[in-house]
Amino acid sequence: MLALLRALWLILLHTFKKRVTVQYPEQKPYVPPRWRGRIILSRDPDGGERCVACYLCAVACPVDCIALQAAEDETGRRYPASFRINFSRCIFCGYCEEACPTYAIQLTTDYEMGEYRRANLVYEKEDLLISGQGKYPGYNFYRVAGVEIGGKAKGEAENERPPVDVRGLLP
């Protein structure tokens, strides 16, 4: 009984405590750099698209809101011909970012994405692609991959020996 009364009293005292509410639009909360907000596609240090359309983000997505189609340019570099995220379904779990082997897909600190039309929440590749490198500067997947693309022949990637001369007789 006393405990109940004490509880009532303690709750009543909260009338005079400091408010924790952040008055949002006027007052912005602190957003940590690793905040999982709006998703972007970044570019590598050379300005090329980082996304190689490997479909891993799409398969990692628990709500299946990423749909893309791979394509290859004439030099063999793979890129997404289309890349669509339906943000009306996205739950901002960040699995896509975790799955991405090239640091292409990144979640940013932007969370102000309210829309009156749901269709406006469907972001195509041109809406997602930014011109910078995002959170992970300096990484270029094609510099470490073995495939040949325009401007990088076989054996020119990091940690690679020049191509083998198959017709050579040396041991």
């Binding site: 479909y55 799409a58 398969v59 997505c61 709500v63 299946d64 809101c65 990423i66 749909a67 893309l68 669509r84 995220i85 339906n86 009306s88 379904r89 749901r118 269709a119 469907v122 195509e124």
Partner: peptide
């Protein structure tokens, strides 16, 4: 693990 179900039609309609 079929992916993209909720995004593959959204260019046509929500």
């Amino acid at each position: 693990r079929y992916s993209g179900r909720t995004a593959m039609h959204t260019h046509i309609g929500m």
